[in-house]
Simulated scan of single mutants.
Amino acid sequence: MNTAPKDFHSSAVIGGIGDILVHDWVYEDAKTKNGYNFKPIFQPVKSLLQGTDLLIANQESIPGGEKLGISSYPIFNSPFEIVDAIMDAGVNFLSTANNHALDKGEAGILISISYFEKKKLPHVGTFKDEKDQQTLRIENVNGIKVAILAYTYGTNGIPLPEGKNYLVNIIDKKKILLELKRARSQADIVILSLHWGIEYMRQPTEEQKELAKLFTNGGADVILGTHPHVLQPIEKLRTEDGRDAYVVYSLGNFISGQMWDYKDIGGMFEFKVSKDIIENVKNIKISDIQFHPTFVFNQNLHHYRVYPLKEAYQKGMIDHSYNEIMQHMMNGVK
């Protein structure tokens, strides 16, 4: 006897945060007698981050560990403990495609991936071999299949080793469109992390806008932008196939040693995905678009903490108000 398939209703809260970029001031502040402890840095925003079911961060500085030599700008290498700290705070997925991906060469990529695997932390953007690069990252979140792709404009002029182009995903329109199509055929929602734009510019370039239209029309539901180190606005786009897609042109720095001129302001982009299947008809909806601005505070390069911006403003840590930043970010979301 055949029974009719049951209707399905589920939802998930998904978040994205910007650059985890560990400058020397930050790791020196986190140094302990037997390693590093970055966990206190994220304590003021931990409850905010843990309100998501899936939280994606851009791991900008390679966490290659102490054997490779901990280092800062321009060639970064971070302690493994930064990974432990962001996971403790609520991050459960990493984008690793950025201009610092090759700072420690192939060794840095392989060691960091080995650590992610040890911690069972999924990631996309850097890969250990061709098979790894060809494997779609699809997270099952409350029964909703979320595909995540990540690409960077380049690697600071450091060439990919010969025959090993798979190590880092570089932005290539044709390849990305093919991957978006593949992802759409297997997932309910597709998130694309793009390392793009111009550093310290608070508005997207024409190229970013063109790529956003191309890739949302090509299948991306959400684009999470990184690289400029400052916040760039969120925009809602209507795709050619009738979907509402959202682009955060830049999520800014979530934690870094950079200061002033908006470089110490980041935040978490948050949205809800609903999945309903009624009589074999599937409906996916993105709603409840939110942005939660954050501020990186320090006292003379010590006691680094990430605060909700509203709290930092009320405590007199910063001159930029919550309202100012929200207006900057949310005007394009109607």
Rank of each mutant, 00 (worst) to 15 (best):
F127T: 05
F127R: 01
F127S: 05
F127P: 01
D129H: 09
E130G: 12
E130T: 15
E130F: 14
K131G: 10
K131L: 11
D132P: 08
Q133H: 10
Q134K: 15
Q134C: 09
T135I: 05
T135K: 14
L136Y: 00
R137K: 15
R137E: 12
V141A: 06
N142F: 01
G143Y: 06
G143N: 13
I144Y: 05
I144P: 05
K145Y: 06
K145V: 09
V146H: 00
A147P: 11
L149R: 01
Y151R: 12
T152S: 12
Y153H: 14
Y153Q: 14
T155W: 07
T155P: 05
T155F: 07
G157N: 05
G157H: 03
L160T: 10
L160V: 11
P161A: 04
K164I: 03
N165H: 14
N165L: 09
N165Y: 08
Y166H: 07
Y166L: 07
Y166T: 03
Y166W: 03
L167H: 04
L167F: 11
N169D: 04
N169S: 15
I170K: 04
I170M: 08
I170N: 02
I171M: 09
D172Y: 09
D172R: 13
K173P: 09
K173W: 07
K174T: 11
K175G: 10
K175S: 12
K175E: 15
L177S: 11
L177G: 07
L178G: 08
L178T: 12
L178I: 08
L178F: 10
L180D: 02
K181C: 12
R182F: 08
S185D: 09
S185P: 00
Q186R: 09
Q186Y: 02
